[in-house]
Nucleic acid binder design. Structure first.
Lengths: 201, 201
DNA sequence: AGCCAAAGTGGAACGTGTTCCTATTTTAGA
DNA sequence: TCTAAAATAGGAACACGTTCCACTTTGGCT
């Protein structure tokens, strides 16, 4: 730990380090928004974040780590937005569909960024397991909260399994859209069909 | 078309061209089996296939195209095997689970190859849409045949939707396994749970 | 204040996917 | 059989992710 009296699980280091990390992720997202995965070039990120290339690699050991970390930050924002203003609807299916469509719409409003982050996520190998796991947890949380907006003492195994399946379909649909294999409308349709199959109240 | 009396939809060219193509895909699969995605290096494939680098790129415009084409060929073999000897079982769910587990087991017996092909598939962009679509069709065919082994006059939209969702989950599970985020057992479990949720007879 | 380890800088260098070019070989058609 | 076009060989060159190194700056401790 960098400071003896810190109790945080994640040690984010000094203020200067937090600042560098933020600048790097900001630069990453700016470049990704502009030109997608290919436009995120390590030399470019370093320059735009005003950091040496070696420093960039000290913070993020690969381009994939960098992009998945950016995804994590963005996703946390989405989840927070959903927490602030949950989707309403009469049935669990409606609420889940609404939540996913809102999130999807948000991502589709910045296609290049979404392309960059999604490609990185799908390409990530075992060395990025920690970050990937974080994102998966966020997604599951998001979905089960939509299923049980009041909160629930304990989720059944089936609840979690359903959330996981929905998450898988959502990711596949997103990949299809990102890689230009399906339209935004088809993506929405795909998600809706899957959710209605899985959550027939 | 290269020959006036060919009626095939896919023009495979002269015998020499078919042979080159086969050699290239053989070399690709050999290298992938041995060392996975990273071991498939374009110079190495060219050398092992006894073909110039430029020729390799004439046949397959990128490493991703190359690997997805290899996946397609392998997948056609799997589908044919399943067609020859369909999985039996009392319910649609049982047959689908058996089919997927057989296929999955086959892939898991060559982890490096599977890693290479799966990563390529997930990373593919719109320029590979044609090949990707082929693979998707094969998968859907495989699943609907397991659902209705006797054949069916016409599949309902729901049938196709279910097959698609199952395919998505299967791919996600495979990616999880390939990237070292889940074990073979978890992968099988994940598929089984999804199928039973979707196909409750 | 002075010291030392850690962090950062700047940039060279390497590997691999991809492009490009010229010379040679193969193939199809007159 | 001869010729023009297409395909292939062989390899240089380029781009970008990644590694490495020598040097400088920063920050905490005595």
């Amino acid at each position: 730990m960098s400071s003896a009296n810190s109790l945080a699980v994640e040690d984010l280091g000094s203020a200067a380090q937090r600042d560098r990390r933020k600048r790097i992720l900001d630069a990453t997202i700016a470049l990704a928004s502009q030109g997608g995965f290919d436009a995120v070039q390590m030399r470019g990120v370093a320059e735009q974040a005003d950091v040496a290339l070696g420093t960039l690699y000290r913070y993020f050991p690969s381009k994939i780590h960098l992009l998945v970390s950016a995804l994590q930050r963005e996703f946390e924002r989405s989840e927070a937005a959903l927490r602030d203003r949950p989707s309403d609807g009469d049935t669990a299916a409606d609420r889940v569909i609404n939540s996913l469509k809102r999130t999807t719409r948000g991502m589709q409003s910045d296609p290049q960024l979404t392309e960059a982050l999604t490609r990185a996520f799908m390409f990530a190998d075992g060395t990025v397991a920690a970050e990937i796991h974080q994102v998966g947890m966020l997604l599951t949380t998001m979905l089960t909260k939509a299923m049980y907006p009041e909160g629930h003492d304990q989720l059944t195994e089936e609840d979690v399994a359903i959330a996981r399946v929905i998450g898988d379909v959502w990711l596949s649909a997103l990949v299809g859209w990102v890689t230009g294999r399906s339209t935004a409308a088809e993506t929405g349709q795909q998600i809706e069909v899957a959710v209605r199959l899985l959550l027939r109240d």
